[in-house]
Amino acid sequence: MSTAISTMRHVRGFDVVRPLSVVALLAIMLPLVLLPLLSIFIFGTSKGLGTFWAALTAPEATFAMQLSLFTSFWATVFNVFFGLFAAYVLSRYDFYGRNAIIVTISLPTAIPTAVAGFALLLLWGPYGVLGRLLAPHGIQLMFTAWAIILANIFVTFPLAFGVIKPVFDTMSRSLEEASATIGATRWQTFWHVTLPSLRGAIVTGALLTFARAVGEFGSTILVSGNLAMRTQTAPLYIFAKFNEGQVEAANAVAIVLALFSFFIFSVLFFARDWLEAD
């Protein structure tokens, strides 16, 4: 009897739903995500690589991209250090109001970027609460690279923290306790034991922050003043050139930004195992 069962072969009927649902999925994604991305590459290269290259190496374009990298870099440095510090304090110590702080740190994700830029203007602008105090000393933060960094810090504030904090929380306390009993100071323990375990989280957090900061538009356009060769970041450059009708110029920088995000995405995607190892 058992042989009869084992030789019987179950032939399953052709399942129509499977290919149909896959096709439907792609059909929805195509106009919404895939085609827009594809079109910047098609359009950007349609007039030849020479035009593309010329548009890309225009002084205004290179300046905008450099400014974006510069401001994003410093915003990232700040937010990674801050995220590390905040995660350490908030996962190691329990105190009254701890959850309130955690919620506050996460708040900037929920605030529209234009509101964030506007708020910064109200605080640091020439007539702002703090800006008014600085203005007599000739210090003007708004409409400079500083303003862009501040805006970037604001909108990417919770990203690094959000990645580092869970790792802190789940990290076995016995590692740090072992280090302490072996004779290490708090600083030695942090440097030799805690930090290496956070390596992946720090890299992930930094990449997320940087990618988000490079693409920031809403808050930047308010606080920077969008001055070409002075406070114009890459996304602002795309916006400005498109408005001026210079579509090729806008498109060249758009391609670079898109490729840059692909790069960061692939690092996060493919290096995940390495980043998340213990």
């Binding site: 016995s174 072992a178 290496p196």
Partner: peptide, 11 residues
């Protein structure tokens, strides 16, 4: 101290 999970430094 020899911890239950040994607490060896993974890196």
């Amino acid at each position: 101290v020899i911890f239950q999970d040994y607490a060896l430094f993974p890196r």
